[in-house]
Amino acid sequence: MSSQPRRRRLEVEQIGDVTVVNFVDRKILDDQNIQIIGDQLFGLVENEGFRKLLLNFGNVEYLSSAALGKLITLNKKLHTAGGRLILCNIDPQILEVFEITKLDKVFNIQKEEQAALQAF
């Protein structure tokens, strides 16, 4: 198998003191892909020192339980560092995945980006 170039999977924008992250991929699947996305998300906290992270899922049509695992780890890392994670703009079908797994109780989930920005 040819190794994929380690291209950027996240679009990162700073709005005030909140770091807003959009996903490049519409489908967050495949172990390798999820690994890269996870590493890039963790890097925002561990290397770049961001503490208020807003993940905008507007572009995401599909994700698997392995991706949920990365979000849980990210949430823990941010909590440990005294930061906060908020998720927003989640497609109803994907939101159902969070509800079934009761992760809607673990994460702060907001409908729109604007409301999410104000929730920090």
């Binding site: 392995a66 949920l68 780890t73 079934i100 673990v106």
Partner: peptide, 21 residues
């Protein structure tokens, strides 16, 4: 059970549950 309180923050174990749902 990945939805049990003590397991909620474990990063794995949700696949089977989603399949069943």
């Amino acid at each position: 059970d990945p939805t049990a309180f003590e397991n909620l923050e474990r990063p794995c174990g949700r696949g089977l549950m989603l399949m069943r749902h």
